[in-house]
Every structure is written in structure tokens, then in C-alpha cells.
Simulated scan of single mutants.
Amino acid sequence: MDLREYFDEFTTPDWPQPDEGTVRFAMVGLGWWTLDHAIPATNDYDTLETTTVVSSTTEKAQRVADQHDSIEHALTYDEFTDGEASDAYDAVYVGTPNALHLPYVEAAAEFGKDILCEKPLESNAERAEKLVEAASDVTLGVEYRMHVQPAVRMMRQLIADGFIGDVALVHGNMSQRLLEINDDYDQWRLNPDLAGAGTSVTDLGVYSINTSRFVLDEDPVAVSGATWSGHEAFDEVPDERASFTVEFPDGVLASCTASQNAQFASSLRVVGTEGELLLEDAFLAGERVLTVTRGDTTVTTEFDQIHETRRSLEYFGDHILTDTPIPGDGEHGLVDQRAIDAVYEAAESGERVEL
């Protein structure tokens, strides 16, 4: 085996590539993720362009527009939902707080625009179902950046090839110090009216849930969980810390933890009957290190960090331009949303919840 060719399989895009065309984006919600990741993606690729930005005020939108030559329209949310400048864009990236995804997806779908929505889809499964239904006549993708991560794609292939035998256990963790990122106690991630039932599971635990689904190529069948909050900033949410088990078919158990008030750390471990895969700094901003063990042999590989959200927008745009179905669509996102809701239900009731 030529190892260079083998690694190229995971570092080179393997989805349909367009011969020509550009997807013009309206960016809805101008938080730091949109400014630092989504808009720069459209500057990086010839197939993408941001022409419209949408925020709470004209002044904020215009400040962003003034920083980019391609942006022609700076709109308020009301102007966007009224259809102003709808001829100026082909697709919409929705990067608002969770509970505000639905109205902007509904508006974009009404205008016939394809949509890339941040995860989770909404604040709860009922609203997420309405969102998916509203977007049934357009392409709806969910921004699962780990789907384009080379190390994660390698894990998926090794598992599919039976390299570690039958999968038995998965361990996933993501934790960060939210208040070091944003010290405002009134921020939306700590507000159930905007974030949903909690903060750590909705914002961080979703990575362990979805990436486990992706590498296993399976959907969960049940969950159980526990949550705890003690810091005053987390008074309105139950999950400053969360621990939950996600059950998959054939007895595969995923033990997951998440916290918005703990050391920056992330990892994903998949243990099989003949080996294991360990991805360190799986979900945060560092380099991905994948340790592959089979029997007595261990190999560690460091992957250069890619701009995952930028690659995700390229991935979405390529599917739009080639008119091909996008994995990680709305129905896929609904599975995560139902699992998240079930974790909170299980933590509150103390009982296992079937999906």
C-alpha cells in the first residue's frame, strides 16, 4: 500500500466538484462564528461569495459590509424576512441563536433559497420538525463540520473496514470555559429562550452525538443522562456539566460528557473487539491527533488543522452547484435534535428514554 495515496483519500475532497458557477450567500446572524469562519470561507473559494449580510441593526450589518468588497446589501432581520434584496443571493447561512433558526429558514425557503443551518437545528424537536418541513422544497444542510474533517473520515473508514473489529464502546468529550470566551452572564447560550433546554448538551454534546453517528454510520436508539449546575452564571440552565449515554444498535454504548465550565478539552475514542481509535482535540481548535491501535500495534498520526467551517461551506456549495443530495441534511439533523431533547428528559426523570 502506498501510504501517501491512502492519506490523500482523506485529505482531498471526494464529493462532486463543479466545473463552474458561484453560490452567492446571505449571511444571517453576524456573531463571531459567522465573522471569523463563514464569511472568510466565501473569500477563500472561487465558488462562494457573500453578497448580503443580515443583523439586528442596519448599522451593524453595514459595518461588516464595509469590510468586504463583495457585500452589496446590509439588511435588518425584518428587511430579510420581507424579501428585500432576495435577488442578490442564492443561498442562506443561518448563524443566529438556536431558537431563531426557524423564522429565517422559513423566509429563505419561501424565497426558494437553499439553506445551510447551524447546529442544532433549533431549540427543540418540535420546532426543528417545522423547520425541516418548511425547507422541504429547497436544499437544507446542517453545518456538521466534523463530516469534512480528514481524521474523522479516516475513523469512519477504518470502522467500516472492520479494522478494530466490532465496535463495543465510544467515549466522547467536549468541554470549554464559556465565560472566558464571553464573560456576559446574559449571553444567549445561557438563555433557555434562545438556546433551548440547556447549554452544554445543545452546544457541545451535539458534537459527540453526531460524530459518533457519523463514524459508526448508525443512529441512536435510546439515551440516559445526568446534569448539574452550580455556578451562578448557569442558574437558568440545568447543564453546566452533563454526562449521558447514547445507545446504538447491536449493543454499542457511547458514554459522552460535556461542560461549558471546565478545562478546554475534547476527544473521541472508539473501542472495538480488536482495537481502538482515539482522536484527541477532536472538536476544538488544535491539531487533530489520531492514535490507531490494533492488537499490540499502535500508530499515531497528526493531521494539520483545516478550516473546518470553511470546508463545510465549500462542501455545501459544491453540492448545490452539482445538484447532488447533501449528507447531513435536515432529516439527519432531526435525529440529533431528538437525541438532545431526550438527554434532558432522561436527566430530569432519571429514566432511560427510547428514541
Results as ranks from 00 to 15, higher is better:
197 A>G: 08
106 E>Q: 15
355 L>N: 02
321 L>Y: 11
89 Y>H: 15
184 D>T: 08
209 I>W: 02
238 P>K: 04
110 E>Y: 00
276 E>T: 01
187 Q>W: 03
33 W>Q: 00
62 Q>T: 10
16 P>E: 08
192 P>D: 10
286 G>L: 11
211 T>N: 09
273 T>W: 05
304 D>C: 06
181 I>C: 10
224 S>V: 05
7 F>W: 06
271 V>C: 06
134 A>D: 09
182 N>V: 08
74 A>G: 12
342 A>M: 04
201 V>Y: 00
352 R>I: 07
255 S>P: 02
291 T>L: 10
47 T>H: 14
18 P>I: 00
61 A>C: 12
224 S>K: 09
35 L>Y: 03
26 A>G: 10
155 M>G: 05
233 A>G: 03
342 A>K: 00
132 V>P: 03
55 S>R: 01
270 V>G: 12
27 M>P: 00
148 V>M: 06
179 L>K: 01
24 R>T: 04
17 Q>V: 09
229 S>C: 11
40 P>N: 02
133 E>V: 09
114 D>F: 10
300 T>C: 11
249 P>H: 11
54 V>A: 02
93 Y>H: 07
200 S>W: 01
123 S>C: 01
256 C>D: 11
105 V>G: 07
37 H>P: 07
52 T>H: 09
190 L>D: 04
105 V>N: 01
315 Y>H: 14
269 R>C: 11
239 D>I: 04
111 F>D: 04
341 D>W: 12
252 V>Q: 07
144 Y>P: 04
263 Q>S: 13
69 D>R: 14
217 D>W: 03
138 V>F: 13
66 D>K: 13
185 Y>K: 13
316 F>C: 12
45 Y>N: 07
142 V>K: 03
160 A>N: 01
12 T>A: 11
92 V>T: 06
135 A>G: 09
88 A>H: 04
3 L>K: 12
60 K>C: 14
312 S>Q: 12
